[in-house]
Write a protein that binds this DNA or RNA. Structure first.
Length: 593
DNA sequence: GCCGTTTTCGGCCCGACTGTTTTCAGTCG
């Protein structure tokens, strides 16, 4: 992620541009530039980092277009324009010329920021982590005013921790969520009536796809606070205690996840839950809105800027309403337009799990699933669904016992027989068909035409170049019998990067051809992710949320797929498997004229 | 450097914590 491409004239990605802007902010801060200027660069960097499309698509060779990005004004727009046109930035070259590169590594050490780094450099000529370590070990840092023995210790510990690289592993939501539920319920049991209210906050509550650490919030009467902290640090999930005070404790759990618990009084609940849910950017914007109304907002309460009056809002709803805003679902709190919508009382009515009427990707024991079609169907019926599509793998995926045309016929006979059993439920004949490396498909059109619907996906040759894999997928989507493109990027969270697929182009083709895109809910996939869902939604591309279940228990994953959809601002009407099959059938491109 | 249902100039989120300080600066979330 660091700025590495400065000398090369080539494609700059959003992430790289953001990294460059962050670095400019760091340099300016080291140089003692006014803090608001550095804040401005960081804000622009953050916005670009979280854009839901390639910045080039916004830019289109005109710097003015870049100013539609929040936090990007004339000066930064011109700099990005120069970068995209020429591949380099004179301003950056100029300000970075005299900065030793090692400085940026020093700044990665916890508790060492730009001010500290500047003093180390200017007063002690320390320009690398190695030099810093030597000086700290020799006790030389404490000779400088403002540095003491503890600072030396902290720096050495920080360097050590960084070398062991133990931090910064984020946990997938599919793992973190049930874990958090367990911790919450055990704490409830341990504390009984002492707990008035309890909720996980932070990125878990916002349902981000991965979680850095877990924030749990408890409200209780003041005298009970220490008892709750004590009970918390004694939970069986606790491995190490980092910090333990009267209202706050921080622990490392047995699975390596850090859990921060905060206990407060019921009157603070509304502001505290709002604050600890985040995101940081959302909170900054919320506090700005408060200020514009003469109110200062903290996690404790509102304060009138003039009169020093404290105003408590015991619920989150009241906290937002105090600012003239609709209550905002946590999934939307990313400073991505939700505050404007909340002010206009125009927030989307987000899709819910209970809106789904069926599931369009799952596997049976005909390929790599472990249950019969009937077992999957009965489990689906028990959930109140009206239809499922059986999408076993096609022959191209031999490793998963992919179906040949002959076995397919046997499977269809089984499905036909099953469908006589139910009046209000139907098993659809489908397939998860492999798109071969050259873009050809596993079955000829005359077979594809006989399915109720067809999913395609890629499992092999995922390392193809951007051009190759994009052409391969585009070719498949242009087939009139290909209805759904499943888990488009092929990523496996924490294990496999997504393919180089040009999603903007895929989205364009999907829109043109009427191909549906999938959110695969398997917790290790979550593909499309939230950001891509939002983009697809903006382009008006229909979405389905599928479980990709290999057993009835696998249906539970839909909860996480729905979370991605919600983070992508989808309403029920944007998700095609909220429709009855009769209606959904009409929306498939194979059935359109 | 950015930005505007009180401002095109004059502001810019807030508090906890830490370590070093005789009252505060830096970092973090």
């Amino acid at each position: 992620m660091p700025v590495k491409k400065l000398e090369v004239t080539q494609r700059w990605t959003n992430q790289e541009i953001a990294a460059l802007l962050y670095r400019i902010a760091d340099i300016l801060e080291i140089q003692g530039e006014i803090v608001f200027k550095t804040v401005a660069y960081r804000r622009a960097a953050d916005a670009i980092e979280h854009l839901n499309r390639d910045i080039r698509d916004i830019w289109q060779n005109d710097p003015k277009n870049l100013r539609s990005i929040s936090g990007v004004g004339e000066a930064i727009a011109d700099k990005i324009d120069e970068l995209l046109r020429t591949g380099e930035l004179k301003y950056y070259k100029k300000i970075s010329k005299d900065i030793p590169v090692g400085i940026f590594d020093i700044m990665k050490i916890p508790d060492v920021g730009p001010k500290t780094v500047a003093r180390l450099w200017q007063e002690m000529k320390i320009t690398s982590v190695d030099k810093l370590e030597k000086a700290a070990r020799a006790g030389k840092l404490r000779t400088v005013k403002g540095f003491g023995a503890k600072t030396e210790e902290k720096i050495l510990a920080g360097i050590d921790a960084q070398r062991r690289k133990k931090s910064s592993t984020r946990v997938p939501i599919g793992t973190a969520y049930p874990f958090a539920q367990n911790v919450v319920s055990e704490l409830r049991v341990a504390c009984g009536d002492l707990i008035r209210d309890i909720a996980p906050a932070g990125s878990l509550r916002r349902m981000k796809q991965t979680i850095g650490d877990l924030d749990i919030l408890v409200s209780a009467d003041l005298p009970d606070h220490p008892k709750i902290i004590d009970a918390f640090v004694k939970l069986p999930q606790v491995q190490d205690i980092n910090a333990k005070g009267p209202t706050k404790a921080s622990i490392i759990a047995v699975n390596g996840l850090q859990i921060d618990l905060r206990v407060l009084e019921p009157k603070n609940w509304g502001t505290a839950l709002q604050y600890f849910t985040g995101s940081k950017e959302h909170n900054i914007a919320v506090r700005q809105i408060a200020l514009s109304q003469g109110l200062s907002l903290s996690e404790w309460c509102f304060t009138t800027v003039k009169g020093e009056n404290e105003i408590f809002t015991p619920t989150e709803q009241e906290t937002y309403e105090k600012l003239g805003l609709q209550w905002i679902p946590p999934e939307l709190r990313e400073a991505n337009g939700e505050l404007e919508a909340a002010r206009e009382k125009n927030l989307p009515r987000l899709v819910e799990l209970s809106n789904l009427k069926g599931d369009l990707q799952m596997h049976s024991n005909w390929s790599d699933g472990s249950f019969t079609i009937e077992q999957m169907a009965e489990a689906a019926r028990a959930r109140g669904w009206k239809y499922i599509a059986i999408t076993d793998h096609s022959q191209g995926l031999g490793i998963a016992r992919g179906l040949t045309p002959e076995r397919l016929k046997q499977q269809w006979a089984e499905i036909d027989a099953l469908n006589k059993k139910w009046k209000d439920f139907v098993v659809l004949k489908s397939i998860e068909m492999e798109i071969h490396a050259d873009g050809s498909l596993d079955f000829p059109d005359d077979i594809l035409a006989q399915f109720d619907l067809v999913l395609v996906s890629t499992h092999s040759a995922l390392k193809q170049t951007r051009e190759k894999i994009t052409a391969r997928v585009v070719k498949a989507l242009q087939n009139p019998y290909v209805d759904i493109f499943a888990h488009p990027t092929g990523r496996l969270i924490g294990t496999r990067e997504e393919s180089a697929l040009d999603l903007e182009q895929v989205f364009r083709v999907a829109k043109e051809t009427g191909t549906i895109l999938e959110i695969d809910s398997a917790p290790e996939r979550l593909d499309l992710d939230d950001v891509r869902v939002r983009r697809a939604h903006d382009l008006g591309i229909p979405i389905v949320i599928d479980s990709d279940a290999h057993s009835p228990a696998g249906f539970d994953a839909l909860f996480f797929g729905v979370a991605m959809a919600r983070r992508g601002w989808l309403e029920a009407k944007d998700v095609l498997n909220t429709l009855e099959w009769k209606e959904l059938k009409r929306r498939l491109k194979r059935n359109k004229k």
